[in-house]
Design a protein around this nucleic acid. Structure first.
Lengths: 336, 336
DNA sequence: CTGAAAGCGCTAACAT
DNA sequence: ATGTTAGCGCTTTCAG
């Protein structure tokens, strides 16, 4: 690795002269600047990032902690975060908690030693279930900024980026009602997550608000991580033959429901409407194409980066802000 | 941030004493060690990673460059890389090239200033098409190790992790032949990538080697990035009503083909067999479940990390190694 | 057993 | 216009 020292020796000048020359300092003669730059270019000199970080007590690096990278939503969020960070001259160190609290703690601890300037994260399932987020508050107490997105916690006072989960589910349910659906079922494999609860409440409230709807809310919980979705949904159709509307509030169960319904020869959307929950273009492989609540994931990621950088450039600002990203109900081919 | 200096001042000892104590040096009295450690713990002291990196000229960080994080294969590869790296005490800085050569160059340049000890990457589509990989060779010439996985290039001499693309496609085609299929079509949206070419050759060779197969190889190219897959595959069935076997060599077109075939009331697998190309459990939502060539993506990621760390601990080793990860033909419900 | 000093690569205040 | 020095936080050799 070529350093300022190397350049200085070759040119018989001091290190600081080289440094200044490379920064176009007024103090240095045009001639020297040129000579220095020429050699730097020739030797492909690049300022050592680590040294600069040490000097500035600033790494220009963001720690990003993702619960599950195989979930398309998080993959897309990562994409957006990387893009915006990169645009602003930041690198991202990616940690995958795999929904484990222990891994989350580990990553926070390991990176809070000056490796990153701040964190962007979505809370792991385990932390959400136990509702124990001390490890995140501890980071904040050390004055390292954290931005939470999607899965957040009321027990943490920091900047957050969320969608209007309640409202989105409410709106989707309203749409099914407007189609005249009489037996609308909610499917979820995220009943234990903050967003899952909010969305479920939106669904229930919409049904309650509907004067001409007589059925009780039907919330079907699907276990994640194994193959039980198949059987659960199969049972749903068997036990509730009258179901004519389905709203899935996670990324995948809507697709499974669609496949099963097709297999059972439901006419879609005539007999049955289905609305999924996902970013646009996620589940484009189905035929008919799944209608869904679009999360604008790119905006979520982008907003997270902006909030964090804003905080970094403004360490003394006290009040936390919560940014709510708009969702959009996209009607494709599984709704009337 | 609490430093050695803080500890030293509080305890009225020198910085070096503190440093040694924290490392359990024999030189330091048990009593002092205890006092130092107690205070360190109390103040939650963590050695500054940046300072250590500078001192050691080693960051314990790997740069990972992924062409497309929305592709499930790469998401899973990232998962595996992160897991193994983390296990070995390394962080990963993730860059997403989004298939762009310019972004790839940018990331390599930006991180090759001491930010990372080495790279793990899969080559972007753009670089592969232009067959210009000078930017990667340049990194290698600066003695920064690079491990390529999946999408590699013969013009780069470095450690590589690949699967037997040719053999995998050959085997899958053989299986369709053994079912007695008479008109086997290959579907691909990656004809311009190294792996796409190899897999296509495997398919062609298998057909050529089959004495009792009379049809010519039919290779259908699908454009990526837009919605043309739908139409292309629709046309396929229209123009080739006799098709009774499909092998998809990318991650997605097999699913689309399955959906379309179901819609057209093909009996699967009686009338038509379909084999996809993907890691296990990727496309588990279909019904019937898609048979596929499993890539053992976790092994690919893990092997990549191991090769890189091996190289880092062995800078002087000269010969490059190429590790070939076994694939597995997994017959599910879309094959007889 | 403890401390002083040098150096990793860089910047910047302060000489000359 | 150029050079010297100190310091970011840490490790390590060398002195005491």
């Amino acid at each position: 690795m070529v350093t300022l020292k190397h350049l200085a020796e070759q040119l018989n000048v001091s290190i600081s002269t080289v440094s200044k020359a490379l920064h176009n300092s007024e103090e240095i003669s045009p001639d020297t600047i040129e000579r220095v730059k020429a050699l730097a270019k020739h030797l492909n000199y690049k300022p050592n990032k680590v040294a600069i970080s040490l000097k500035n007590s600033k790494t220009n690096t963001i720690g990003v902690i993702i619960p599950n990278i195989l979930n398309h939503f998080f993959a897309k969020a990562l994409l957006a975060i990387e893009k915006e960070a990169s645009k602003q001259g930041y690198n991202i160190i990616t940690c995958l908690s795999n929904e484990k609290k222990s891994k989350e703690i580990n990553s926070l601890q390991l990176l809070s030693n000056g490796s990153v300037d701040g964190f962007i994260m979505s809370i792991s399932e385990e932390s959400q279930i136990s509702n124990n987020v001390d490890h995140i508050n501890q980071i904040l107490s050390h004055n390292i900024p954290v931005v939470l997105f999607d899965r957040v916690s009321d027990n943490i006072d920091c900047d957050k980026v969320i969608i209007d989960d309640f409202g989105a589910a409410y709106e989707a349910t309203k749409h099914l009602l407007s189609e005249g659906r009489k037996h609308i079922v909610l499917l979820s494999d995220i009943h234990d997550l903050s967003v899952g609860k909010l969305r479920t409440n939106g669904y229930i409230e919409a049904l309650n608000d509907a004067s001409d709807y007589s059925n009780k809310p039907t919330v079907i919980s699907i276990k994640r991580g194994d193959d039980s979705a198949d059987a659960t949904i199969q049972d749903l159709f068997k036990n509730n033959p009258s179901v004519d509307g389905i709203i899935s509030i996670d990324n995948t169960s809507g697709v499974v429901a669609l496949q099963k319904a097709l297999k059972l020869n439901y006419n879609i959307p005539e007999d049955l409407s289905i609305i999924g929950f996902s970013d646009e273009n996620v589940l484009q492989f189905t035929d008919p194409k799944l209608s869904s609540i679009s999360q604008n994931t790119l905006d979520i990621g982008k907003a997270s980066v902006k909030l964090l950088l804003n905080r970094l450039n403004n360490k003394d600002q006290v009040k936390s802000t919560t940014k709510i990203i708009k969702t959009k109900l996209v009607l494709r081919e599984t709704t009337k």
